[in-house]
Each structure stands twice: as structure tokens, then as C-alpha cells.
Amino acid sequence: KELVLVLYDYQEKSPRELTVKKGDILTLLNSTNKDWWKIEVNGRQGFVPAAYLKKL
């Protein structure tokens, strides 16, 4: 499993997105899109802007 660090808080703006908090370490599911990465948070899957995340 690949992990990502959340660099900035992000509030979901659609049902396909997820809310994340700065400092969270989460599972990366897909990073093929350069702008939006798919991650998992508490069993939910969704997208967060790639600029808000850093691969560990």
C-alpha cells in the first residue's frame, strides 16, 4: 500500500471527494490523474486534489 501525507485541509465539494485534515496519513488508491488522487479515509473512497497530498 502506498501512503500519502495531507499537506493542507481540504473540504469536500462533491460526493466524489473526501474531506481531509493537514497531517493525516492516508492510503493512496490511484494517482494516475495528475490533478486528482483517489484515497481512502475511514473506509470511504474518494478524490482529493493532488496538490494537497505528498507521497510517503
Rank of each mutant, 00 (worst) to 15 (best):
W36L: 05
P49A: 03
P15W: 09
R16S: 13
V20M: 05
V41D: 15
T27Y: 10
G23A: 03
V4H: 01
V48M: 05
V41F: 15
K34M: 11
Y10K: 01
K21A: 11
G46H: 04
P49T: 01
L29K: 04
I39C: 13
L5G: 02
P15M: 10
I25H: 04
V48C: 05
K54V: 14
L7G: 01
F47R: 03
Y10G: 01
Q45V: 13
E17D: 08
L28M: 04
P49C: 03
T27P: 14
L26A: 15
S31C: 10
V6L: 02
S31Y: 10
R16F: 15
Y8I: 10
K38D: 05
L3V: 09
P49Q: 02
L26R: 06
V20S: 01
V48I: 07
R16C: 15
V20C: 06
L29V: 14
S31A: 14
A50E: 04
S14K: 07
Q45F: 09
G43L: 06
P15S: 12
L26H: 15
N42A: 11
A51W: 10
E17S: 08
S14E: 09
L26Q: 06
Y52E: 01
T27V: 14
P15A: 11
N33D: 15
F47D: 04
L56V: 12
E12R: 12
Y52H: 15
Q11S: 14
Y10Q: 01
K13T: 14
A50D: 02
K1H: 15
G23V: 00
V20Q: 00
D35F: 14
D9C: 04
T27M: 13
Y8L: 11
W36K: 03
K21I: 08
V4L: 04
V20A: 03
Y10D: 00
K38W: 14
Q45G: 09
N30Q: 10
L53Y: 00
L18D: 01
N42Y: 07
K54H: 11
D9Q: 03
T32I: 08
D24F: 06
P49R: 04
K1C: 11
V4R: 00
K22L: 05
K13N: 11
V20P: 00
W36N: 03
K38Y: 15
E12P: 13
N42Q: 10
N42G: 14
L26D: 02
Y10C: 01
W36H: 05
K1V: 15
K1Q: 15
N42D: 15
L5T: 05
E40W: 05
Y10T: 01
F47M: 10
V20I: 09
R44E: 12
L18V: 15
Q11A: 10
D24W: 15
Y8C: 12
Y10F: 08
Q11D: 15
L28S: 02
E2M: 12
F47A: 03
L5D: 01
L3S: 08
T32A: 14
T27Q: 14
T19A: 06
T32W: 09
K21N: 09
V6T: 04
K22N: 04
K21E: 07
L29W: 05
P15Q: 10
D24R: 04
I25P: 00
E12Q: 13
L26K: 02
Y8K: 15
S14I: 05
A50H: 03
N33Q: 10
W36A: 04
N30T: 08
E2Y: 10
G23P: 01
D9I: 01
V4E: 00
G46I: 06
L53F: 04
S14F: 08
W37C: 02
K13A: 14
R44S: 07
L29T: 06
D24P: 00
K13F: 06
I25G: 00
I39H: 00
W36G: 03
L7E: 04
L28E: 01
T32L: 10
K22D: 03
L28R: 01
K34S: 12
F47V: 08
A51F: 12
K22I: 04
A50L: 02
E40N: 04
K38L: 15
L26G: 14
K13W: 05
V20F: 04
S14P: 10
N30W: 08
K13H: 10
P49E: 03
E40F: 05
Y8T: 09
L26P: 04
K1F: 15
I39N: 01
G46Q: 02
A51K: 13
P15Y: 09
P15D: 15
R16N: 15
K21C: 10
I39K: 00
K38V: 15
I25T: 06
A51H: 12
D24E: 12
L29R: 04
G43P: 02
Q11I: 10
K34G: 11
G43A: 07
P15G: 13
L5S: 04
W36M: 07
Y8E: 13
V48N: 00
V48F: 02
I39W: 00
K38Q: 14
S14H: 13
V6Q: 01
D9F: 03
L26C: 12
L29I: 15
V4Y: 05
K54D: 08
G46T: 03
V41G: 15
D35W: 14
K13C: 11
V41S: 15
Y10R: 03
V41R: 13
K1S: 11
K22Y: 05
N33A: 08
A51G: 13
G43M: 06
K13V: 08
A50C: 06
K13P: 07
I25M: 05
N33T: 07
L3Q: 12
W37F: 05
G43T: 05
A50G: 05
K54I: 12
E2W: 11
T19F: 05
V4T: 02
D24M: 13
V48H: 01
D35S: 11
K54C: 14
K54M: 14
G23W: 05
Y10A: 01
V48S: 01
V41K: 15
R44T: 10
L26T: 07
T27N: 12
N33C: 09
L5C: 07
L7H: 02
S14L: 07
L28I: 06
Q11V: 13
S31M: 09
F47I: 08
G43I: 03
E2D: 12
